[in-house]
Computed example of a mutant assay.
Amino acid sequence: MTKKARLIYNPVSGHEQMPKNVADILDVLEQAGYEASAFRTTPEKKSAQNEATRAAEAGFDLLVAAGGDGTINEVVNGIAFLDERPKMAIIPAGTTNDYARALGIPRDSILEAAKIILQKKTRKMDIGMADFSGDEQYFVNIAACGSLTELTYGVPSEVKSALGYAAYLIKGAEMLPHLTENEMRLTYDDGVYEGKLSMLLLGMTNTIGGFEQIMPDAQLSDGLFQLIIVKPSDPGKLLKLMALALNGRHTDDPDIIYTKTKSLKVDLIGKSKGQELPVNLDGEIGDYCPVTFKNLQQRIEFYVGKSGK
């Protein structure tokens, strides 16, 4: 029986380069032995996610998510909850493309990214699940919350390109006067942290915002999150921590807890109760605390490049 592949692409990603590449991508999929077709996402909410679910339930063997990190996240959310899940491939056409970087997928050529499928190298990858009191959402790269979270996603891509990690320090200095601390209880495999914090990061890969040193021990298939808890600190110390983190020298700092865990329960306590604290999943707001995270080990099989960890 011929295998079927469905390309799910965002037409406005990558400076609207995707539509002109669709025919060539479908040709690559045919070369790989798939009967290929395409779906162009619409502005409708969860367009890519709903199509991913439909295609999976229709028996497609491969879903190719083409677009930015948001499109990839939607396709993952469309299949992660299913008992039978197709393989996935990704074609990065966004600004950061963190997950493509982690999987060793070319980020400078849409067609070269598609040709990774011809190498026939796949790997089963961990998927993160965030349970917001029964509303389950999924992520492939990072979950974050706390007042410093905006730093991870608030720097425009053109500024990052021009200034590198200095852009984050500039953004951090801009944010410092407005930072708040949240009193929280975090329950993870090795213990409980209860008290104020500036930010927590729960990572699936070693790449955040284009930087590869923030989660230095990350593995993609070991069933473990990388957990970073940033304790409260004075503004000068926070700037120092940012500089250390962007260069991978932060994990032994006494104001940071860095560990691995299969799960994490996040609760607001004390004066924070009644306040809404958003949780960011792969760069977008998922929902609000409380939340319980679980690592779904080797949940989805992805095509990877030679350097995919």
Rank of each mutant, 00 (worst) to 15 (best):
L148Y: 06
M18I: 14
E150L: 11
L264H: 07
L201R: 00
V230T: 12
G223R: 11
Y138R: 04
A113N: 05
N206I: 01
T71A: 00
D69P: 01
R107V: 13
L26V: 07
D24W: 07
E301G: 09
A56C: 12
K171I: 04
T122Y: 10
L202K: 10
F302N: 04
L176Y: 05
T180I: 14
K260F: 05
L151R: 09
V12H: 08
A167C: 03
R101G: 03
A58W: 07
K120I: 05
G283H: 06
T207P: 01
A32F: 05
A52Y: 00
I256G: 00
I8R: 00
K306P: 07
L200A: 12
C145A: 15
K20Y: 08
G308R: 04
C289L: 15
G203Y: 01
T187H: 13
K121H: 08
V291H: 08
V155S: 00
M199R: 12
A66D: 03
S272A: 12
T71S: 02
F81E: 14
D217L: 09
V159E: 12
M18E: 06
C145V: 11
M1P: 10
Y153D: 09
Q298N: 12
A52M: 03
C289N: 11
N50E: 12
E183P: 07
E136L: 14
L163N: 08
I8K: 00
